[in-house]
């Protein structure tokens, strides 16, 4: 199973970025709803769309798809 994104569907809302528990443990400010301060996180919004930076850190907990309003981030 892999973490995948569909940038055409992404609205750039960043819900996945702040919902991701691994992101929050790497860059604690996302827990409060801010953007991450490091590119060490799994995913980040760049130029208005979601981009995966370190998909290998994903543990497939299934949290991000629960919060994505457009199914732009998914596990397959």
């Amino acid at each position: 199973m892999e973490l995948k994104v569909d940038q055409d569907l992404c609205l750039g809302c960043g819900n996945c970025v702040v919902a991701c528990p691994v992101n929050a443990s790497i860059s604690p400010e996302v827990y409060g709803g801010h953007g991450p301060k490091t590119e060490d996180v799994i995913m980040m919004v760049e130029n208005g769309v979601i981009k995966l930076f370190n998909e290998s850190k994903c543990t497939k907990c299934g949290t991000c798809p629960l919060f994505c309003p457009t199914d732009a981030i998914y596990l397959e």
Binding site: C61, G62, T63, Y74
Partner: peptide, 9 residues
Amino acid sequence: GDIGAIERT
């Protein structure tokens, strides 16, 4: 398997 993703999504 990746039970988190299986159970939740």
